[in-house]
Design a protein around this nucleic acid. Structure first.
Lengths: 127, 127
DNA sequence: TTAAGTGCAAATCGTTTGCAGTTCG
DNA sequence: CGAACTGCAAACGATTTGCACTTAA
């Protein structure tokens, strides 16, 4: 039973696609209205929940207290090495961790697995 | 300037030590009362915040919405495999990713590197 | 037609904060 | 004594939910 194709759900998907990365429910709400469409915040939450349950998007719960969502990007993803001091960022593309994620997921019988990984340290200039 | 040595703060520390692992603020509250001491929930939150800011404890923000705290244990850190649908969480302890983090950091001449890594998928019951 | 989806407002729930009273140093 | 800490209750902000109304199928 696939979900009903409503204007609101379409708007949420469109907003997420346009965003390309992580967004909070409230940001999506604002961006949807800015785009001329409309969808109640509650509706956005409901759609995000069902999409997440369906494995269509990733949810993160940062310390800030506001959850962030983004469309699943099974491929084309990479990681970051960030300097705690100056904020310099190096993009990491490592097959190792992809494989680790896949293996680990299989070991626990999880499917449709995505992952996040970030490294934080002091770069050579700041150390 | 180190913090004041109050009964309440002591009770929080004691509860965390006794716990050994992660606890929510409310669990600590209950355990403190069960232990015969007393400390208002607000006070517990205040103490946990200051301890976290001082780097004395780790804080995690799981999907459930309730933060969990534990005394810092520089070793024994692990990652999580979380079900997008039901929130079930498996703790992962993998030397591979630790090594990957260390290697990657060295390759880019970063020091004092820490990292985060989380996996998201659908568990066998929800798939 | 009718089950699923929506909007709105009220309700939750974890966490924070204002303020007056208490306590450590 | 005086700054730091506590308790309580009210305030908050994100998310959820009850309910009557729409709408996709």
């Amino acid at each position: 039973m696939s979900p009903k194709r409503t204007q609101q759900r379409a708007a949420v998907v469109r907003a997420l696609e346009q965003a390309g990365g992580f967004r909070t429910a409230q940001q999506l709400h604002a961006e949807i209205q800015a785009g001329g469409s409309s969808a109640a915040l509650a509706t956005i939450y409901r759609n995000l929940s069902s999409m997440a349950a369906a494995g269509e998007l990733d949810v993160l719960h940062p310390p800030g207290g506001e959850a962030i969502y983004r469309l699943c990007q099974l491929q084309e993803h990479h990681h970051h090495l960030v300097c705690r001091s100056c904020g310099a960022t190096v993009e990491i593309d490592s097959p190792d961790i992809e494989e680790w994620a896949r293996k680990t997921a299989r070991r626990h019988r999880f499917r449709a697995v995505s992952h996040t990984a970030e490294l934080y340290g002091l770069c050579s200039r700041c150390a």
